[in-house]
Design a protein around this nucleic acid. Structure first.
Lengths: 169, 169
DNA sequence: GGAATCCCAACGAGTTTAGTCGGAATTCGT
DNA sequence: ACGAATTCCGACTAAACTCGTTGGGATTCC
């Protein structure tokens, strides 16, 4: 259960675009350098994000990529699902007929587990937008993150769990 | 974000052992046939589970595998972590020094996302024990499964009714 | 002794990952 | 018109991983 670099680099790149949202196209080279990712590799990832309608591109000099929507309207889940494929812990909870993936799907108790896991992952990833990420960075830098006791299932934004995440032993 | 067959087969096998808990050693062949998994492949998985102390084995005729603890004391998370490795969406939220995985780990906002995701996954998987699985199967078979038909956001059933959630490693 | 069973190590075909490489097409500024 | 910047596209690859298979050895029960 580890994300590949595709998902991680993709989120980094989209975060970078979010930081420069409204400033016109951002050339891939700049993003690649800031986020320390191979430019050519990132190019492939951006192609996927463009086909999925999450970014728009403009070619030629002064060209680059831009978010297709406001950072508040793009979630981490949107990005990860494009680059890593749908979040399906098992085939039997993917799109389509479960019975085709496993003939016992109807009576399978484990399927309920994978379903629950899938829903949980999607809920977490969809609860965080690029805007949340940018806001959180501001909070981190200004060193004023509040304390949240809501636990890991808290879906009320990143800022509230920041205190927990920074307290690393 | 898909589990490999290791995790899925492993859970199936452990579930099978849970169904026969207290009846003495269960030969691998029987489990493999019931769960429709290659016997030799399952053997490798059981070796890992044995080394992790989740099952005990007895050799020779009438030998086989048994759960090392009560089904209520073994969670899906225990099994999945043994067979799939630790649940770390990214290196920077794995065991050890995060800065060694990524020099920007301290200031990285995305790291908070992966941390949150990791905690969520572990929480779900650790909230479901083998006993929960067996109980749920009884509910499914008796066709009175009201608890799990409440839609994708249902938080009841599978672990939260019995309240067998245990340690957090 | 023989059958059942676990234990171990190696092999391998296929797929995925994480890129690299080379070049074509488009656009901007001058 | 030209050249630089940039996206776009397809092919290639080394390494790792997945999902097993193969072949034998050790142990235990009857």
């Amino acid at each position: 259960m580890r994300l590949s670099t595709r998902g991680k680099y993709g989120v980094r790149a989209m975060y970078d675009l979010a930081l420069h949202y409204g400033e016109g196209p951002v050339p891939l080279k700049a993003t690649a350098e800031r986020q320390m990712v191979s430019e050519h590799y990132l190019e492939q990832l951006m192609a996927g994000l463009r086909r999925a309608g999450l970014v728009t591109s403009s070619r030629g000099a002064q060209g680059g990529y831009e978010l297709a929507r406001s950072p508040a309207d793009i979630t981490i889940g949107d990005i990860v699902r494009v680059l890593e494929g749908p979040i399906d812990p098992a085939e039997c909870v993917a799109e389509g007929d479960p019975v085709e993936a496993c003939e016992r799907a109807d009576e399978c108790t484990m399927r309920l587990v994978w379903k629950k896991l899938k829903d949980c992952i999607n809920r977490v990833l969809d609860s965080i937008s690029l805007k949340d990420l940018c806001d959180e960075t501001a909070a981190l830098v200004s060193d004023s993150c509040g304390s949240c006791r809501a636990g890991p299932d808290c879906t009320r934004g990143l800022g509230e769990t920041a205190g927990t995440a920074r307290r690393t032993p």
